[in-house]
């Protein structure tokens, strides 16, 4: 019985097509769903959302969000260093190294973490 495999392939091909379409449609209309950026861009503050693979940051603050407590409990408190390890397909979620373990996080959720880049 080989059907389940084909099904899996088709599901994923479909998912991928949908994802790409959604991504570009959203992009072309400048739609961004549910962004919780609490730090305004005028102040030129950077959040972990913009982090790219290989970059290192120091956490400066964690903005109010439903996740705040969990993020801090998991060790993302001000002063902690964070390395962006890699991203999932489409760049989101991202994998981080925090306090000697690895944590995966969606970029929308990472937007509540204010950071400062370090060399």
């Amino acid at each position: 019985m080989i059907e389940p495999f084909f099904v899996a392939v088709i599901i994923f091909l479909r998912y991928i097509t949908i994802s790409i379409l959604t991504f570009y449609i959203a992009k072309s209309y400048h739609v961004k769903v549910k962004i919780i950026i609490k730090f305004s861009r005028e102040e030129n503050k950077m959040t972990l959302r913009e982090g790219k693979s290989g970059q290192r940051f120091i956490v400066r603050a964690v903005a109010d969000s439903p996740l705040k407590n969990r993020l801090m409990t998991m060790g993302l408190v001000p002063g902690t260093s964070v390395t962006v390890l890699r991203s999932a397909p489409l760049g989101d979620p991202m994998a981080l190294r925090v306090r000697s373990y690895h944590l995966a996080l969606r970029r929308d959720d990472a937007a509540s973490i204010e950071v400062e880049a370090i060399a």
């Binding site: 994923f12 998912y15 991928i16 949908i18 994802s19 959604t22 999932a88 397909p89 489409l90 760049g91 989101d92 979620p93 994998a95 995966a104 969606r106």
Partner: peptide, 19 residues
Amino acid sequence: MARVAFITDPIMRRVGLTG
């Protein structure tokens, strides 16, 4: 499994589920 959740989340999220 944790990696599977990680790499499929972008797709699953767009259909209203989670990785």
